[in-house]
Design a protein around this nucleic acid. Structure first.
Ligand SMILES: [Mn+2]
Ligand SMILES: [Mn+2]
Ligand SMILES: [Zn+2]
Ligand SMILES: [Zn+2]
Lengths: 137, 137
DNA sequence: TTCTTAAATAGGAATCATTATCTTTTAAAT
DNA sequence: ATTTAAAAGATAATGATTCCTATTTAAGAA
C-alpha cells in the first residue's frame, strides 16, 4: 500500500520518514482533496507530536516531486490530491466537496479536438475540466 | 464604458460610488486576472486614499452580485475576472500569466457530450477548462 | 553495529493576504 | 436641504502559511 510511495521517495532521493508516509496516507484515505489542516488533524491521531510546519513542508515537497498535486479552487486554502492519473473535478456549488471524475472518452474527445485546433502562441501541456454543479442528496 | 457597470450596480441595488467604479475599471484594464493587490496599486494612482479594506469588500460584493468572477488557481492569492461570458483559461506553467480562451466550437462539443453522458448523482451547471502550458515568447 | 553527516522534524515566532471593527462620510431618496 | 442606510477609511485582528533554529534521525560508510 505505502510501498509504492516509499519507492517513489527513494527514486526522488527523499528520505523515507514516518511523517512523510503518514501525510501521504492521510491524503489517500481522506479523499475529498483535503486541506493541510485536514491532514494535520488526521495525522495527529497516530503522530500526536507532528509539527504543523512539517506538514506544510512535506506537502510542498511532495507536490514539487510530483507525488501529490494541488487542486485549483477559489479559496485561499490549499487542497491536495493523491490521484495522479489524468482526471477532472466535480465542484459542488454549495459545499466544499470536490470529487474526482474520470472519463476516458472525454479525454480522447478533447485530445482529438486540440490535435487540429491549435491555440496561437500557446503550447498545451495539460487540460482539466472544472465541472461545477450540485451533488444529489 | 462604465455605463454598463453603473447600470448593473443600480439593478442590484448597490450604490454607485467612485471606489466601485474605479475598482471595476481597474480589473477591466489590468487584464491578466489581477489580484487584490494589483487592483489596489492601480486604483491608488487616481484614488490615493482608497482603503485596502474597501477594495477587498468591493471585490467580494461584486463577486456576490455577479459583476466579477473569481479565478481558480493553485495559489492562496485570489484573482478576479471581469469577463462574464462563458470562457476558459490558459495557465502558464512558468509564470503567473492567465489568459482568456474563448472557443464556441469547443463549448458546443462539450455541451453536446454532456447531453448524452450524464454524471451519476451530479447536476452539471457549468464546465470550464483549465488549459496549462507555455506561452510562446 | 557503530559512526557520521546531511536532511528532516519540532516548536515557536513571523509574515501577510484577508477580515473585522468602529467611526466618519456619502449616495440617493424624500 | 434633510435624512438615513449603506459605504468608505483607518486600523486592529485573524489565520493559513512560512520562516528560523536547535534537535533528531535516516541512511550510507566504516
Ligand atoms: Mn493566505
Ligand atoms: Mn487567509
Ligand atoms: Zn482529484
Ligand atoms: Zn477570464
Amino acid at each position: 500500500m505505502a510501498h509504492f510511495f516509499r519507492e517513489k521517495l527513494k527514486e526522488k532521493g527523499l528520505k523515507v520518514t514516518p511523517q512523510r508516509v503518514a501525510i501521504y496516507e492521510a491524503i489517500v484515505n481522506l479523499k475529498n482533496h483535503p486541506t493541510a489542516e485536514n491532514v494535520i488533524e488526521y495525522v495527529k491521531t497516530n503522530h500526536p507530536n507532528i509539527s504543523v510546519g512539517t506538514v506544510y513542508k512535506v506537502l510542498d515537497s511532495l507536490v514539487e516531486n510530483e507525488l501529490l498535486k494541488k487542486v485549483k479552487t477559489e479559496k485561499d486554502i490549499m487542497r491536495y490530491d493523491a490521484v495522479l492519473s489524468n482526471h477532472h473535478h466535480l465542484y459542488c456549488t454549495e459545499t466544499e466537496r470536490i470529487e474526482d471524475y474520470e472519463d476516458e472518452n472525454l479525454n480522447e474527445m478533447i485530445s482529438n479536438y486540440f490535435k487540429n485546433k491549435k491555440i496561437k502562441n500557446f503550447k498545451v501541456q495539460d487540460i482539466k475540466l472544472q465541472i461545477t454543479g450540485k451533488f444529489n442528496k
